[in-house]
Amino acid sequence: MIKLTVNGQEHAVDAEPDTPLLYVLRNDLGLNGAKFGCGLGQCGACTVIVDGAAVFSCLTPIALLPGRQVTTIEGLGTEDAPGPVQRAFMTEQAAQCGYCIAGMVMRAQALLAHTPDPSEQEIRDGLNPNLCRCGTHMRILAAVRRAASSLRAAAPTKAAAQ
């Protein structure tokens, strides 16, 4: 049994310690957001956030994770109450087949957390690990720009509320 904290919830998982997080999320925890794309760290379809950093869950054996916080796209919001980055992707209709999109959202979420006002180059470099084969790049970029500005707009209110 290995203890994992995913989206704030503790789970005890009965899987071999070398099992990449991706398979545990999808098959043991029923979280479908992260996708298998390559299993090689080449496409980012499996991207999740571990302790604030975007990582390839396909190359993250669960042995690494006790004591660490995993966030998946399911942890960002729901269809009815999407998080700001998810909402920006909806507004921009930033998907074709959408298989890459959950990974894009997670990559963008991590990027914006430490670079709240990214330049165009920073967004593009930040998304470099992730591939989209449908050619949705322009909409994804627009969605990340939109998410950045909505997060920035929300930031002062949040600060005031605290």
């Binding site: 071999e16 070398d18 990449p20 190359l59 054996p61 669960i62 042995a63």
Partner: peptide, 8 residues
């Protein structure tokens, strides 16, 4: 180490 190697 073996788990890290196999999985990563």
């Amino acid at each position: 180490a073996l788990a890290i190697f196999n999985g990563a």
